[in-house]
Design a protein around this nucleic acid. Structure first.
Length: 485
DNA sequence: ATGTTC
C-alpha cells in the first residue's frame, strides 16, 4: 500500500496530507478520490503533490484530482494556485503539452444513420486529419504568419475562414489567451510548430465518433441545454494540444529557469523537475507569455481540425455541416496556467492557477461563460480511454474550494511500457471492432499503450468528481469510431 | 506529451 499513514479523511471523496508530513511544506496537500481511487494511485502522486506544496507563494492547498498519477515534477491531475506577487510559475505545473485539451461537437445525426457509413467516415477522418509523431498539417504558413497564430489563436482561424463566431464563443477564453507575444518564442519552437497546425499527434490524442444513448444521460435538462436532445445522438470528441511547438516552449523555459532559479533568485526546490521562476520576474513573465502562444496555437490546432471534421461529414452525408447540426458544445483546456479571480479566505483575489491534467469547471454564473451557459455552469469534457467512453459534465458551485477545477480523464494505472508488453495493438483493434468500435491508427504499438485496461475506470472518476461537488455528470458518451496517432 | 536521447 502506497498511501502515506499521515493522510486523513476529510470526506469520502477528499483526503489531506498535513504540512508536518515533509519538511518544507507550506500548505497541506489535498487529494480528491474515493478510497479505491486513492489506493490505485502510485506513490509518486503523494510524493509529488507534497513537493508542490513546498513551492513559494502556494495558496490554500496543493491539490490532486481523482484521475491523478505520476508526472513530470507535478502529478498529472495537479492544481496549484500561487500568489502572483510572491509566488512562482513552473512549467512542470502546466505540462509539456501546453493546452492539451478537449473539444466536443454536436451533430443532428443518430447512431442508426451513421452506422452504415461508419467505416467510410472513420477512414476519411483518418485520411484528412494527420496523426502520429512528427506529422504535418495542410495549412501552409510562413514562420511570421505562424507568429500570428500563436498570438491570436482561434481568432486567426476566424479571419482565415476556419472558424465561426459561435466556435470562438464556445471555446474557453474565446480561443485566445490575451498577452501572448511571439517575441518570447525560440526559433527552434517556431521551426517545430509552423507546419503542425491541424494535426492530431500521437499518444492518447484521438478523434472519436461517440453516441449519447438515452440510458447514459444523467441529467436530461442539462443535456438539452448542452444540445444533446435526440435519442442516440452522434457527437464528435477530440483530444490534442500544441504538438512539438508547446513541447519546445516548455523545454526552452525549463532549461532557462534551471539556470537562474537558484543563482539569480535563490530558489531551492526539492526536485529539479519543479524548475520555476518568480512569476514577477523577466524570465517568469517571458514564460507566461510564451506559454500563452502555445495555448493559442493549440486552440487554433483544434479549430483547424474541427474545420476538417466538418468537411468530412459534409462529404459523407452530402449536406452542409451546419445542416448536420455541427455546432460546438465547448472546448476546454487541461494543461495551462492562468490568472483568475477567486475568493480566498473571504476576499476576491487574482491568483495564478496551474492546472496540469485538470480542467477548469466554472459553476453557474462563472465569469466569462457564454450567456447560454450562465445558468448551467460550464460544460466540462472528460475523455476516457478509447475503449471505455467519455463524459460530458457541468461545473458546480461546490468547486469553489478547488478554484473551480475538476478531473481531465481516466488517468493511467499502467505505464505505457507495461501496457505495450501486456497488450497487442492488432488484436486490440480486432477485439474493438467485434464490439462495434471501428478504430484506425498510425501505430499498433501506440494503440496497445492506450488499451482501456491500462487506465482507471472513467465511471468512478466522473462519479467521484460529482460526489466531491466539482462537476455534475450530464451524459456518458460511448465511442463507435476512433482515429488515433 | 515529444523530430519518443542535446
Amino acid at each position: 500500500m502506497n498511501i502515506p499513514t499521515a493522510i486523513t479523511k476529510i470526506s469520502p471523496t477528499l483526503w489531506e496530507i498535513p504540512v508536518s508530513y515533509k519538511e518544507g511544506m507550506l500548505v497541506p496537500a489535498r487529494i480528491f478520490a474515493t478510497e479505491k481511487l486513492l489506493s490505485e494511485m502510485d506513490a509518486g502522486v503523494f510524493d509529488q503533490v507534497t513537493n508542490v506544496a513546498s513551492l513559494p507563494g502556494i495558496l490554500k492547498y496543493a491539490y490532486c484530482m481523482p484521475d491523478g498519477h505520476w508526472g513530470y515534477g507535478f502529478p498529472i491531475g495537479g492544481v496549484a494556485a500561487m500568489d502572483p506577487h510572491t509566488g512562482v510559475i513552473s512549467p512542470g505545473g502546466i505540462g509539456f503539452d501546453i493546452n492539451c485539451g478537449m473539444r466536443l461537437v454536436l451533430t443532428n445525426l443518430t447512431e442508426e444513420e451513421v452506422r452504415p457509413r461508419l467505416h467510410q467516415l472513420v477512414d476519411r477522418l483518418f485520411a484528412r486529419i494527420p496523426t502520429g509523431v512528427g506529422c504535418h498539417g495542410f495549412v501552409r504558413l510562413s514562420e511570421s504568419e505562424f507568429g500570428q497564430v500563436a498570438e491570436q489563436g482561434s481568432r486567426w482561424c476566424f479571419k482565415r475562414g476556419f472558424a465561426t463566431q459561435d466556435d470562438l464563443d464556445m471555446t474557453e477564453e474565446g480561443g485566445c489567451f490575451a498577452g501572448a507575444d511571439a517575441s518570447h518564442i525560440s526559433n527552434k519552437a517556431i521551426q517545430r510548430g509552423y507546419n503542425q497546425l491541424g494535426t492530431l499527434g500521437s499518444g492518447n490524442h484521438y478523434c472519436e465518433i461517440q453516441v449519447a444513448r438515452p440510458e447514459n444521460v444523467f441529467d436530461a435538462q442539462l443535456a438539452r441545454a448542452f444540445g444533446i436532445d435526440i435519442p442516440n445522438q452522434v457527437v464528435v470528441m477530440f483530444h490534442c494540444g500544441s504538438r512539438g511547438f508547446g513541447h519546445q516552449v516548455a523545454t526552452d523555459y525549463l532549461k532557462l529557469f534551471l539556470s537562474v532559479m537558484e543563482r539569480k533568485y535563490g530558489l531551492k526546490v526539492v526536485d529539479r523537475e519543479l524548475s520555476c521562476a518568480p512569476f514577477r520576474s523577466p524570465e517568469g513573465e517571458a514564460y507566461f507569455s510564451a506559454m500563452k502562444c502555445a495555448v493559442n496555437m493549440a486552440f487554433a490546432n483544434r479549430q483547424v481540425i474541427l474545420h476538417r471534421i466538418r468537411e468530412v461529414f459534409s462529404d459523407i452525408f452530402q449536406r452542409d455541416p451546419f445542416n448536420l447540426g455541427m455546432k460546438m458544445v465547448y472546448d476546454v483546456a487541461h494543461n495551462t496556467a492562468k490568472l483568475e479571480r477567486h475568493e480566498i479566505d473571504g476576499k476576491q483575489r487574482e491568483i495564478l492557477i496551474h492546472r496540469k491534467g485538470s480542467t477548469r469547471a466554472f459553476g453557474p454564473g462563472g465569469y466569462g461563460l457564454p450567456e447560454c451557459y450562465a445558468k448551467t455552469g460550464q460544460p466540462v469534457i472528460i475523455g476516457g480511454s478509447m475503449e471505455t467512453g467519455s463524459y460530458l459534465l457541468a461545473g458546480m458551485a461546490g468547486g469553489a474550494d478547488a478554484f473551480f477545477t475538476t478531473a481531465h480523464g481516466s488517468g493511467r494505472t499502467m505505464s505505457r511500457h507495461q501496457a505495450k508488453k501486456t497488450f497487442r495493438g492488432d488484436k486490440l483493434q480486432r477485439d474493438m471492432e467485434s464490439r462495434g468500435l471501428y478504430v484506425r491508427t498510425d501505430s499498433f504499438g501506440g494503440l496497445a499503450e492506450e488499451a482501456g485496461a491500462a487506465y482507471k475506470n472513467i465511471d468512478e472518476v466522473a462519479e467521484t468528481t460529482e460526489r466531491a461537488g466539482l462537476s455534475r455528470r450530464v451524459a456518458r458518451l460511448v465511442p463507435i469510431g476512433n482515429i488515433k496517432g
